[in-house]
Amino acid sequence: MEVSKKNKVYGLLGRDIGYSFSRGYFTEKFEKLGIEDSEYVNFDIPSIEDFSALIKKQQFQLHGMNVTIPYKQEVIPFLDKLDNTAKKIGAVNTIKFTKKGLLKGYNTDVVGFENSLTPFLKKHHKRALILGTGGASKAIAFSLKRLGIQYRFVSRSPLKKKEISYESITQKVMERYTILINSSPVGTFPNVHLMPQIPYIWITKQHLLFDLIYNPSETSFLKEGKMKGASIKNGLQMLELQAEESWRIWNQ
């Protein structure tokens, strides 16, 4: 856990986040804009129970946080308020520290995902499979609903109505669901050889594969889609767009 001497501190809350896109992005942003009184640091905590101690330690400096795996849902009970979108989604990836000392949660993944996905959508893209059921998947589902796209979650242990197992993805399912979204961490660096266990054999040129992972830029999941002629998109632009939306919220 890091302690900063800067007047304004922003950071990323997560676990095992040695390298983070957010830290590099905002550090570069501050340098470009000539912002010298601010710093972006990683807040790597082993348990969400350590969050309160972290806040007390940094309370006079903290202005904003991004939240990543595995705390997008777990952090909610520690917040004072949620904006309407975050409340509906049930997951938070941005926290604003208000002048009154309150912690307000937002979800900027929605903005990032929608604006990143929309240019790739075609008329036949009416249904989507969301691979994974973590905090990020909830923002994806919220966005798809707003776009009028039907969806189902794919889980290793399906429990809810809209969830199916990886084993139940048949040729018919693949033909109906032409958008495939990997919201799980499977395939991220250093385990770049891994990919979600779906029947890639039935991917066609009609499919659109979107991977929230940005490192590597072309995951094994995306490579398989590319070989079948599908459209592919990684998560880098989504991350950049959600970061800018976080910055807007922190400074509004």
Rank of each mutant, 00 (worst) to 15 (best):
V154W: 05
F142K: 02
K56C: 12
E167R: 11
F189V: 14
I179N: 01
G101N: 11
T68M: 07
L82S: 03
T133K: 08
Q59M: 12
P119C: 14
E163D: 08
V154G: 04
F210R: 00
R156W: 07
V173S: 04
H63A: 07
T204W: 11
A53F: 13
A141I: 01
Q206N: 15
Y10C: 04
P196V: 07
Q73Y: 07
G90E: 00
Y40E: 02
Y106D: 05
F21M: 12
W247T: 08
W250A: 07
E240M: 15
G229A: 13
V75M: 06
A230N: 09
I48R: 04
Q252E: 14
L79F: 06
K57A: 13
Q171W: 00
Y214W: 07
S47T: 11
F43H: 01
D50K: 10
W250G: 00
Y40L: 05
E224Y: 08
E49S: 12
L54R: 07
N84D: 14
T133L: 09
K228M: 11
K99M: 04
S143M: 04
F43V: 03
Y151M: 05
M174F: 11
H207D: 13
E163P: 08
V75C: 09
K223H: 11
L103H: 02
M65H: 03
F78C: 02
F21S: 07
T98E: 13
K223F: 09
P199D: 08
R15V: 00
P158H: 09
S22R: 00
I213F: 04
K96D: 10
L102W: 09
L222D: 01
E218Q: 14
N42R: 12
D109N: 11
N234A: 13
S155K: 05
I17V: 15
N7E: 15
I130R: 01
N182Y: 05
E28C: 09
G34P: 08
L147M: 15
F153A: 02
Y106T: 06
Y71L: 09
E28F: 09
M174W: 05
S38V: 07
V75R: 00
N7C: 06
K160D: 10
F26R: 01
L12K: 01
I76N: 03
L159F: 05
K233L: 15
T133Q: 03
M227L: 14
S168Y: 09
L33H: 09
V192P: 02
M227T: 12
K8R: 14
R23S: 11
A91G: 05
I35K: 12
M238F: 14
G132N: 06
Q242C: 10
G24Y: 14
F113L: 11
K56H: 13
I55P: 03
I89G: 04
V41N: 07
E240Y: 10
G18A: 13
L103K: 15
M227Y: 08
K126G: 08
L13V: 15
